[in-house]
Design a protein around this nucleic acid. Sequence first.
DNA 1: CCCATAATTAGACAGAGTCCAGATTTTGGA
DNA 2: TCCAAAATCTGGACTCTGTCTAATTATGGG
Lengths: 143, 143
Amino acid sequence: MDMMVQQYSRDNMADLLRGHDINPTHQRIEIAFALFSRQQHLSADQIMAIVNDRHSETSKATVYNTLNLFLEKKLIREVIVDPNKVFYDPNTQLHHHFYNVSSGELTDIDANGVTICGLPKLPEGVITEGVDIIVRIRPGAAA
Amino acid sequence: MDMMVQQYSRDNMADLLRGHDINPTHQRIEIAFALFSRQQHLSADQIMAIVNDRHSETSKATVYNTLNLFLEKKLIREVIVDPNKVFYDPNTQLHHHFYNVSSGELTDIDANGVTICGLPKLPEGVITEGVDIIVRIRPGAAA
DNA sequence: CCCATAATTAGACAGAGTCCAGATTTTGGA
DNA sequence: TCCAAAATCTGGACTCTGTCTAATTATGGG
């Protein structure tokens, strides 16, 4: 499990990828490392900038392909709060988000201790894929 | 208040708009009518298709300008769940959503009776703009 | 009726993300 | 080791959503 990983390095990225049935290639390791070593919510273009800052070049197509592969294999999660771009989140534990609408900043809310009461029954023939709470915040007078 | 409106017609759209400090023009009335008469979640391109289906032509720029104006004046609300497009929601009452990730269908969840417990305190210097719950669902074996 | 202002328009533009066909790398036999 | 097949990566064209701009067209008060 992810919890066993003390410190994220390029070395244990390969194992992490293999553990999710993903063939660890150079580019995939770099992209995974960008996300996991920072533990931040990053957009595709931020990831591309990080990965291409150092030596190896990674194309836009590969960045998107890789992120979609990671999503499919449930290695990461996407957060949809900004109409302009998707954020990718290395934290797949159940959690929610504060979203600062004026700065665009995303902050995790641990789901431990958060409960939702009174949700209606699901429509027929569907199952829940996930429940997201997004608390939209903006700078303002503190009480 | 909106509750007074028994049936949405182009006629009462003008009053609705004026009530929100919006000058009622032809295009604005058509766009408001498209949303309110259907009480559905529509994307900008769906709205443009509806409005241009009948006689009058409305440009893309006007559709977007108008929707953004409606948002600003709090006549409608935006729902961000699909990475590709924003949905506009004529229901500004507090409510949440089911989002069918395979069909893209959005369904309202009345916020009455729904409570969230255990959310952490807000960070310093910010205020809440809104709290959204999105229940992502997809077709699947019913229990 | 006239004019200032508000609103609308077409089309160019920008940015996110996808697609494709060719090049490159990796892999596993023999 | 060598080779062919499979997997991966790439640039660039493309689509789509949404914005911008400069010019045109309503609109309403005097």
